[in-house]
Design a protein around this nucleic acid. Sequence first.
DNA 1: CAGCAGGGGGCGC
DNA 2: CGCCCCCTGCTGG
Length: 426
Amino acid sequence: MMASDGMLSLSWNNHKATFCHILSTLREKERYTDVTLACEGKFYPVHKLVLSTCSEYFEKMFEHTPCKHPVVVLKDIKCADMEALLSYMYDGVVSVLQQDLARLIKAAELLQIKGLAVPDEPPLKELSKKNAYPWSSRDDRSSPHPKRRRREDMMTSTSQGSSLPPPESPPSSPQHHQESNQSWDHSKSHSQDQREDGVDQRVGDPVEPAVEFSSPKQEASHNQEPVDESLVKEEVIEGSEDNQGEGMDSRIEYGGMGGGDSNTGGEEQGSKFPHQLDTKHPQPLHEAVVEALAGPSGMQGWLGTGELGGGFSMLEGYSEDGNQEVHPASTGPHGTQQSHQMVEMSTCHQRLDGGRSREEEQPLITRKLHQCAYCSFSAYTPSGLKEHKRTHTGEKPFACPYCSYKSNKKFNLKLHLRIHTGVAAK
DNA sequence: CAGCAGGGGGCGC
DNA sequence: CGCCCCCTGCTGG
């Protein structure tokens, strides 16, 4: 925010990253989607805008497709690849097994995905800096430019397949940004294959005539190994103030330690855990965006306060699209949806204390944070989050039978009732 | 003092 | 593990 003779320039910190994340969220929630990609019987409601942005192919296709909501049938694309590409287009990053890379690139070429197949701009510097791992830098993803990240470099160090062992790479490895296959992900990854049941809703969708899309040069019928999208990293909210200043990654990767006895002792704990960020003051702009774009029940996993700046670099790996069923037909009652990001803070240490100040004094805790979708608050428990959310939604389920008082909290109602029942207060 | 909101303990599933 | 209940701290009238 700068002032030049009376003129204020308000800048939205982290705007681009935020914007991208909102887009991604919109896709998850199927908000404003205006095209449906269909491949291998699965349907992916997405946005023309995004596709067009990332692919001239789509751009032209939509240019010549007057339908308001066309269904594009991708005959020669594996759904796993499609999901990966969508993840790439929306999040700017995609996790792919090395063995699937070639197929993915081929698919990307078919669709002329910028950055994966079509040089969107001088790619030299991006690629040559590969070892700099730009995405782990604090560059807040200031540019949504697609980058062809040959993640296979890293993937080779870990074994592949659906049951990736915990990344055992040394902490110095630059990859601790991305792929930690959390143990709790394993269970979820199993359900990957059941995504179909979630998409039936689209089948009968009386949208416009389907656009048959058959890529000219595709033959791929390799084994269909779904891209293990559980290869997502988990972001941990980080109090950037505490940042030792040295770059970024005070963000920690809690990869694979959930399993258990591999108590790593020191190094991880070295990095302090987030105590609460400035939870009292969610960024008004962000909230506004949340409200405006995602609605009260949108924006899951919203972590951001712009102030965090380099504390984390957006949620690139945060892909509920990977772990979630593809858009269940009903998103649950308004305001009560429970989807929230769970960040597992796993340090293989047992709970160390029960005191209130544990956060400040003991970073070595094992617990889950339940991230509020509306602000940077993280609750200890899901129910805590639930209650907290009511402060955003205004939901007040507990009404006083004697007056018009309503509370968002049962116990508060109980306290209130005392003024009616005559029980001495406090 | 009333209201609000976060944290934590206890208990049941 | 999640829900329920309660304690506690803060704020405003």
